[in-house]
């Protein structure tokens, strides 16, 4: 039996195909204007030598979940990230999900069920979009940011919370000749401190080792992980494909639906 999970995010759309509880394939495409849910599922299916007729159930998640007409069910990205992260790393109790336009902190119980969550409110300051804007200002690739920041010797201070003001700050740092790696390290720290605020708002008890997992595309940035670990004071586990965790969770729920 085959099922699919689609995560229609602000920046990218992801699909995961499951067959008998195992991940058969996945695919990631840029969301663009029209939404790419159908396309991404087709691509993932062809990787697994399957077609849409083979799918028993599709669950959609992500901010565009209501615009996935072929999905039989819509589930929020909060529940899906919880399900996906717990499947990959059963010790997960806290998830930090930093995506294209929002950041979330999700708390799970031992069974992997979501018990609490927090989301950034109406502002993209602690999100992937913030990193994109800064990469653009620094004229570097988004993917390079993590590695470059590790070379930093002196992290600069980015004091503005607002993405647009922070960009002006970055530009003035560039103009005053501060090395790019120090500016990037500062950008990471600025995001990390905002995400840490969200994180601690949902932490009431001691956080155990190996219980904090980061998902979402920003988790691929090693500099960002390092900054976050410094801010929250504990090691963060990153699954191999952090950006497909939501789609994986959706696929796992699709599988459960088939057995219900």
């Amino acid at each position: 039996m085959y099922v699919a999970g689609v995560d229609s995010g602000a920046l990218t759309t992801k699909a995961v195909i499951l067959g008998d509880g195992k991940v058969l394939s996945h695919e990631i495409v840029l969301t663009g204007m029209g939404g790419k849910a159908h396309e991404v599922v087709e691509m993932a299916l062809s990787k697994a030598d399957l077609s849409t007729d083979d799918l028993a159930f599709v669950v959609a998640t992500g901010y565009g979940r209501i615009n996935v007409p072929f999905a039989a069910k819509q589930v929020t990205e909060i529940t899906c990230h919880g399900r996906g992260a717990h499947f990959l790393i059963p010790t997960t109790r806290m998830i930090i999900d930093v995506g294209g336009q929002d950041s979330k902190v999700i708390r799970l119980n031992e069974q992997g069920n979501v018990v609490d969550f927090a989301m950034n409110d109406k502002c993209a300051a602690g999100s992937g979009r913030f990193l994109e804007v800064m990469a653009n200002a620094l004229e570097i690739d988004l993917e390079e940011m993590g590695k470059l920041s590790l070379r930093s010797k002196k992290t600069v201070e980015i004091s503005s919370t607002c993405t647009v003001f922070a960009e002006s700050e970055v530009i003035s740092h560039i103009a005053s000749g501060i090395p790019k790696e120090d500016i990037i390290a500062g950008i990471h720290r600025a995001i990390a401190s905002r995400v840490a605020g969200l994180f601690f708002s949902k932490v009431r008890r001691k956080v155990e080792q190996d219980s904090v997992v980061m998902t979402g595309g920003v988790a691929k940035n090693i500099g960002m992980i390092k900054s976050l670990e410094e801010e929250i004071g504990i090691r963060i586990i990153v699954p191999p494909k952090p950006q497909i965790v939501g789609a994986l969770g959706a696929a796992l729920i699709a599988q459960e639906e088939c057995f219900m």
């Binding site: 589930v75 929020t76 909060i78 529940t79 919880g82 069920n113 979501v114 018990v115 969550f117 729920i253």
Partner: peptide, 10 residues
Amino acid sequence: ALFEIINGRG
């Protein structure tokens, strides 16, 4: 997401 928690889906 809150409703999913309440309904046990979370």
